[in-house]
Write a protein that binds this DNA or RNA. Structure first.
Lengths: 217, 217
DNA sequence: AGCTTTATATATCACTCGTTCCATAATCCC
DNA sequence: GGGATTATGGAACGAGTGATATATAAAGCT
């Protein structure tokens, strides 16, 4: 009477030969490679070498290069997004949220959280400009999703009377994302944390000027 | 007695069979392709098809794919940079220059100068993250060159007493470039001219807040 | 005219790409 | 143990990559 429960609990009670590698660890390696080099410039040979597995294992575990990239995007979101959006989510005000997003981005984009590639995997990705329409749509929706997240926080603040309803939430959110995306390009070119933080600070003065009366203490 | 002069004047007085295609026109086609898809995702077959020539002609005229890309960068600079930097160069004040750069970028990046790809070829290029070190260096120096151009205009304005010498020209120039690069990403995702102009305007309020006393009339 | 020089078209090079076949190995179930 | 099932390592697949060899065509030079 325990078989069904075991299966439900064990999630993937495989019957055949067990996988010899850690799927998530291999996915992490693949993510790093896609992140640093992009989709097109990363070959299956590069991937199998970095992941320490053979190509049949890669295809058995992930299906295809495109599917692996899609999973890498998910892995990136699950593991690295908190570096950017952690304090944004818990901030008390919209201004603190946006400021935290940009300042934390300055740190994360310049590699101040361990040995990670510079720049944002999503912002710098140009997949989809070449025929991989499905992946392009994923990346694009990840970018517009981030913008929507900022916009939602802004509208929340407007509804709460925290900032005047004369501000254009659409435009301001787009501005914030433009700054963050631009910081990724700077990071790719070698800009350090302090330099990116300077950009974030100037960007916030733009915020303050636009959201008059919400200047910091 | 006229042979030497003729050669010096004609620049390339070829002796053999004349080239059957317009080199600059073919280069323009190649530039458009590299611009829209990037270096890696553009194949020789794509190029020869768009340029209307065979691969031996391409190699005879340009040398290699990398050399063609390098020439495309030059062609891009010579032909499209004025769309971005034209009014910047002739502006009377640093503020007008930067504002013109961002506002004109909003138009150019969203394709409002004929049928050109969205976004900036240089800002969106990720060549060099994959082994083409030489091309990567070219693109990187094009980006840092743009930043240096803004910075130089700022320092000029500081020297002229146009803006206070308390402003950090480095940081402000980096901020401007971040906004412009970010606008390229937005443009790639479909943002229109008006949306990018909104970003530019908000960015300029950041400028005004930072460069106190230089607010527009 | 013939000779030299350069460009073109066709076909092809060696190589890498993403992907899969096949034989073998390792595990679970009975 | 045997049988079913799944993973692995090595080899190989067809397609496409960047780049050329070869033969022919079109020009200038003398």
């Amino acid at each position: 009477m325990s078989e069904a429960r075991d299966i439900a609990q064990a999630e993937a009670r495989s019957r055949g030969r067990p996988r010899a590698f850690d799927r998530e660890a291999a996915l992490a390696k693949a993510t790093r490679l896609f992140w640093a080099r992009g989709f097109e410039a990363t070959s299956i040979a590069d991937l199998t070498k970095a992941m320490g597995i053979g190509s049949p294992s890669l295809y058995a575990a992930f299906g295809s290069k495109e599917a692996l990239y899609a999973e890498s995007l998910r892995h990136y979101r699950d593991n690295y997004e908190p570096l950017f959006w952690g304090r944004f989510s818990s901030a008390a005000t919209a201004r603190e949220a946006v400021s935290a997003l940009l300042m934390d981005s300055a740190a994360a984009l310049s590699g101040h959280h361990g040995d990670i590639p510079n720049g944002c995997m999503v912002a710098l990705s140009s997949v989809g400009c070449e025929g991989h329409e499905q992946l392009g749509e994923m990346v694009r929706s990840a970018r517009t999703g981030a913008e929507a997240r900022v916009k939602a926080r802004l509208e929340e603040a407007i509804a709460a009377g925290e900032i005047p309803d004369t501000v254009d939430a659409d435009a301001l959110a787009r501005y914030v994302m433009a700054v963050q995306s631009g910081m990724s390009v700077l990071a790719r070119d070698g800009a350090g944390r302090a330099e990116l933080e300077d950009v974030a600070k100037i960007a916030m003065t733009g915020w303050d000027a636009r959201v008059s009366g919400a200047a910091p203490a």
